[in-house]
Simulated assay, not measured.
Amino acid sequence: MARHSDGSSLLFLHPVGLDRRCIEWLDLPPVRAVTMPGHGERERARLGLTLADMADEIVGHSTGPLDVVGASLGGMVAMHLALAHPDRVRSLVLACTTPRGDSAVMNDRADATEDKGSAGMLEDTLTRWFTPAALEADRDTPYMAYARERLLAMDPGALADTWRAIGTHDVLERLGEIRVPTTCIAGMRDLSTPIDVMRDLAARVPDARLVEMDAPHMAFLERPREFSVAVLEHLAWAGEHTPTEGALR
């Protein structure tokens, strides 16, 4: 993994259904992206795998301090990473994500995925993720073609597993333990994560700032240039930031 001048590494954690290739549209310094279990080329994980397990695996395959950028599912895993391995995280970018999953909604979505298959859930997912304008231009947009291809290719069982894992995710009452510089990126057109959720998240993390983008849930795909600028500004801010007590130094 490429390192920056201060010894830290930039790591991107992707949303449900995508894989490490999703960073293709971002204009960032050397960045590594990992593929979550059951996604991309990776086989379906064991039953009962949690987001905390995903975070532990990431730490086991990396070294040194990390600046972690997580979008949607990736942001949830990033929170677990910062809580379970605070000595490994220098800073966080939490984009269009939530500290608490809705188990009823996620379990229903998992059941529907197993019943209808990935193809049967595709349009519902894309509608939650992108703006109407992006959906209308679907066939002419590389990132839309990528998202569609990845969702269609994913094993419905693995996708359902991930929805259920999100349903068990709950770090809301522990957000005050995250002691590193954190930028929360909210999409003002996000149908999956209402902006009030992101505002509350930013308010609960001691050293957090909120950036609001005119973007949907997949802000980093639909507005990659603006998203990249927000990450670069975060890295500059985090590099100048004085850590709070207990933060990675």
Rank of each mutant, 00 (worst) to 15 (best):
R88H: 12
M54K: 00
F130D: 06
H85Q: 05
T182K: 07
C184M: 08
L28E: 06
P30H: 02
A186R: 07
G157N: 07
M154Q: 14
S91D: 00
H85I: 11
C96N: 15
R179P: 03
R204E: 02
I58D: 01
R32L: 12
M36Q: 14
T244Q: 02
L175G: 05
R100S: 09
A55Y: 10
T125N: 13
A134E: 06
A219S: 09
D115L: 15
L92V: 14
C96P: 06
T193C: 13
I166P: 04
V93C: 08
G60D: 09
R42D: 05
D102E: 12
M213C: 04
V229M: 02
T97M: 11
R100I: 07
M144Y: 03
Y146Q: 06
A45P: 11
D19W: 00
D111H: 09
G157A: 10
L201Y: 10
A247V: 11
P30W: 02
D140M: 08
D67C: 07
P65G: 07
T162D: 01
L151E: 13
R139S: 14
D170C: 01
G74Q: 07
A137K: 09
V205D: 02
G157M: 04
L159A: 13
P65M: 08
E123M: 13
E226I: 11
L126H: 10
M218T: 11
T98M: 14
S9A: 15
M144R: 15
R148I: 02
A119W: 00
G75F: 01
L172E: 04
L28D: 05
L73T: 00
A202H: 00
R3P: 04
F130M: 12
P29C: 10
M76N: 04
E114D: 11
A45W: 03
E245K: 08
R150V: 14
T162K: 03
R46L: 09
R150K: 14
S8H: 12
A202G: 10
L47W: 00
L94W: 07
M54R: 00
A112Q: 13
M188S: 15
L175T: 02
L159N: 07
S62A: 12
L151Q: 14
A203F: 03
T97I: 06
E136D: 14
P142S: 12
V205N: 00
P206W: 07
D140E: 15
R148Y: 05
G74F: 02
I185T: 02
H85N: 00
E149K: 12
V68N: 02
L51D: 05
Y143G: 08
V93A: 08
E212Q: 10
V205H: 01
G75N: 01
L28P: 09
V180D: 08
S62P: 01
M1D: 13
